Simulated assay, not measured.
Amino acid sequence: MPCEGNLGDAKFILKNGVKMPAVGLGTFRIRNSDVLFRTVDVALEAGYRLFDTAAAYQNELFLGYALRKLLPKYGLTREDVFITTKLSPSDLRGDLVADAFRKSSDNIGLDYIDLYLIHFPGAANIHAQDSKNKEFRIEAWKEFIKLYDQGKVKAIGVSNFTIRHLTELAEATGIEPMVNQVEWHPHYFQSDLLQYCDSHNIRLQAYCSFGGLAVSNNTLMEESIVREIYAKYKATPAQVLLAWSLQRGVAVIPKSLTPHRIKSNIQINFRLTQEDLSQLDSLGAANMKYSWDPSSVA
């Protein structure tokens, strides 16, 4: 990460040389076209260039429409933005990947996708312990490699994968993901996963950066340690939590529908001290997970 300036402007270079913005806009649960349009408008003006969606979010079509209409407004082209989407767990099978990808591409209306992720290591409607999960995700990953080799995606990765899941892909194909998008915040983070990904040049990208805010749980945002640190920097609690991830080398995709928060989430003009980072790390003792747990998936 850069030593000076706005952390929100930083980019991470993936193992294949692709530059990925460190801060992007998450679109989870935004299923109204007008709302997403307004949100993307504010985000583009604020400087966001990465937009994260998924087949399961049911808003790829809305995002594509917003980008087609709004990029010209800001003098931007397709190449100026980085678009991520994901293979739904209901399509986690080798023979389903090509059609699922084509549908996502058509929905977004793009010639290529910047980053395509396997959304979850388990398939829909299959028990977590079923060994077919491993078979299906390896099949799917082989199809992802084909999409990459064909130039249809600039980078490929996974989401919610544990070290075991990542290791299995590497052993089966010799090709490791470029990104692993996981739940990551001071209440729940896996130092061993970060260490593994760093050593294998896999970039971690955080979702749920604000803890349980997406499920109306403000516990993390209201922690006394968070309050003390954001008061010290005259920052927002969200900015402190995002800086904590970014300074660990973890990319972020915060979601907000509020214009001033969208803007402030990408304006991080301070650096946390080592003491600040350690204090925030101490909140991990709570071990509070707010999203789905992949650890039980065979």
Rank of each mutant, 00 (worst) to 15 (best):
D130E: 01
T219E: 12
M20C: 04
Q274K: 14
S209D: 05
S159D: 03
S295R: 15
S159Q: 02
I163V: 12
W141S: 02
V18W: 11
T173C: 01
I30D: 00
N287G: 10
L147E: 01
A243W: 06
A123C: 03
A235Q: 05
A286Y: 15
Q274Y: 10
T173N: 00
A285M: 14
S191V: 12
G64C: 09
H260T: 13
L280E: 07
S256L: 09
Q279L: 14
K154C: 09
A43V: 02
E228P: 10
P72W: 12
E4L: 15
D99V: 13
G5M: 07
L193Q: 05
G64E: 10
I229L: 06
D192T: 14
Y148N: 04
E275K: 15
G284N: 11
K263V: 11
D9G: 12
I83S: 00
L7S: 04
L63G: 08
L67K: 08
Y48I: 10
M178W: 04
A22N: 09
H185D: 03
Q129V: 12
K234Y: 11
E139S: 06
N217S: 10
G47Q: 05
K15G: 01
V40N: 06
A285L: 14
A10M: 12
R93M: 08
F270M: 03
S256R: 06
K69Y: 13
I163K: 14
L169I: 05
N217G: 09
K73F: 08
F37T: 12
L272P: 03
A238H: 07
P2H: 15
M221Y: 08
E176I: 15
D52I: 11
E60L: 06
I175W: 01
Q239C: 05
P72G: 14
G174P: 00
L272M: 05
R29A: 04
V297K: 02
T27I: 12
Q274P: 14
V81I: 13
N125E: 13
R137G: 02
L67A: 02
E228K: 15
L70M: 07
Q190A: 08
H260L: 12
E4F: 15
V182N: 01
I268Y: 08
S88H: 13
L213T: 09
R49L: 13
L115C: 03
Y188V: 11
I266H: 07
V81E: 05
D41Y: 11
L204Q: 06
P259M: 07
D192H: 15
